[in-house]
Computed example of a mutant assay.
Amino acid sequence: MIENTILVIGGTGKTGRRVADRLTAAGVPVRVGSRSGSPRFDWHDRATWAPAFAGVRAAYVTFYPDLAVPGSPALIAELARAAASAGVEHLVLLSGRGEEEAQASERALADAVAGTGTAWSVVRASWFMQNFSEAFMADGVREGTLVLPAGDVPEPFVDCDDIADVAVAALTGAIPPGQVHEVTGPRALTFAEAVQEIAKAAGREVTFVPVPLDAYAAELRGFGLPDDEIELITYLFGEVLDGRNVAVAPGVRAALGREPRDFADYARTAAAGGAWAPPA
């Protein structure tokens, strides 16, 4: 029997955690899809998929490490078919803006559930603001120097809270299915400008240092980062961050009837919460 439970695949991640928290606060039963969940969910263990989908009405799908990874469209299609077979009524996929494999995954999702009675939605996001405070860039900011292979190309960074609000609206039927919601922040900033906003909010000096992509990849390799993760990072900085995503998109306003959160507001909130407190 299908209940009102919503499965959040990647429910411990930056957007999944926020989606799960919002659904729980609204009284919606949530199942966190992760390798430590119960029932557990593992992208690379298909035997875990059917138990995770059992009794689920809708699912929020985030793919690890990123839909830019080759082969992700086929895996997304396989997952979508498994969800449809389990009677899931609606799949909401988190996708990446300007990523060829991500857009192919969006099409694979829609094609896989066509004619099954399972609806789909896509939340296609720009780079997360929270990458500066909750991911691989946070340590550099805390130490006062952020080194990245990023030049002067601006990016309309989006707040993960806005992503979660749009996803929840789709999952709960507040906005109709069958749409791609392209979400960004209200303005595009270079990485140097974003770091300036962070420094202002944190009340201390933080410097941005651009470096060549190959030198950055070599440094990551020296830190022992796996080759597949290095390839993903170099793809995102070397290809996706080429100006294709400079334009601001109206997805947050169209879905929620309000403007997206500005980077300066995000920086003030993160700084007040101690995200960039310097190392002791």
Rank of each mutant, 00 (worst) to 15 (best):
Arg97Gln: 15
Asp165Ala: 15
Ser85Ala: 15
Arg204Ile: 04
Arg268Ile: 01
Pro226Val: 01
Ala86Ser: 15
Ala150Val: 04
Phe53Cys: 13
Phe41Ser: 11
Pro65Phe: 04
Leu67Gln: 05
Gly243Lys: 02
Arg244Cys: 03
Arg18Met: 04
Val19Ile: 11
Val8Ala: 12
Thr118His: 05
Gln179Glu: 14
Met129Phe: 14
Arg107Met: 07
Val246Met: 00
Glu182Leu: 09
Thr116Ala: 09
Ala52Arg: 04
Arg187Phe: 02
Tyr60Gln: 01
Ala110Trp: 11
Val141Gly: 11
His44Glu: 15
Val28Phe: 06
Arg97Glu: 10
Ala217His: 10
Ala280Glu: 14
Phe191His: 13
Ser36Gln: 13
Ala114Gln: 11
Pro279Asn: 12
Gly140Cys: 09
Val195Thr: 12
Glu259Tyr: 03
Leu23Ala: 07
Arg18Thr: 02
Arg97His: 10
Ala104Cys: 01
Gly257Gln: 02
Pro278Met: 09
Gly33Tyr: 10
Ala77Cys: 03
Arg97Thr: 07
Gly257Pro: 03
Val19Asp: 02
Pro154Phe: 01
Gly140Ala: 06
Pro73Gly: 05
Pro156Tyr: 12
Ala119Asp: 03
Ala267Gly: 05
Ala194Cys: 07
Leu220Glu: 13
Thr234Arg: 08
Asp161Arg: 13
Ala201Cys: 09
Ile198Ser: 06
Ala164Glu: 01
Ala215Val: 05
Arg268Pro: 00
Thr207Asn: 11
Ile175His: 00
Tyr64Lys: 07
Gly37Ile: 07
Glu78Ser: 15
Gly27His: 04
Arg142Thr: 06
Trp43Arg: 15
Glu101Val: 07
Met129Val: 07
Val166Met: 02
Gly71Cys: 05
Thr24Gln: 13
Gly33Glu: 07
Ala80Leu: 08
Gly98Gln: 03
Ser126Phe: 06
Glu229Gln: 14
Thr24Gly: 13
Asp228Phe: 14
Ile76Arg: 00
Ala77Gln: 02
Thr5Ile: 09
Gly222Gln: 07
Ser36Asp: 12
Met1Leu: 13
Val206Met: 12
Val211Glu: 14
Asp45Tyr: 04
Asp111Thr: 06
Gly71Ser: 03
Gly117Asn: 07
Ala167Asp: 02
Ala104Val: 02
Ala277Ser: 14
Gly55Phe: 08
Glu134Met: 12
Arg142Val: 12
Asn131Gly: 13
Phe263Ala: 03
Asp162Leu: 08
Ser121Lys: 01
Val153Cys: 02
Ala125Ser: 11
Ser133Asp: 09
Arg46Tyr: 00
Ala255Ile: 04
Asp66Met: 12
Ser85Met: 05
Ala52Lys: 09
Ile6Leu: 01
Leu146His: 10
Lys200Glu: 14
Glu101Met: 04
Ala254Thr: 13
Met1Phe: 09
Ala135Asp: 15
Ala174Asp: 14
Ala201Arg: 07
Arg97Tyr: 14
Val209Cys: 01
Val206Tyr: 12
Leu148Ile: 00
Ile230His: 06
Asp66Glu: 06
Asp111Arg: 03
Phe136Pro: 02
His181Ser: 09
Ala104Arg: 05
Trp43Asn: 13
Pro212Gln: 01
Leu109Arg: 10
Ala82Trp: 05
His90Val: 03
Val195Asp: 00
Val183Thr: 12
Arg261Gly: 00
Leu213Ala: 05
Leu232Ile: 11
Val240Cys: 03
Val92Arg: 13
Pro51Ala: 12
Val240Met: 12
Ser34Val: 08
Val141His: 11
Glu229Cys: 00
Glu99Asp: 14
Glu182Asp: 13
Pro260Ala: 08
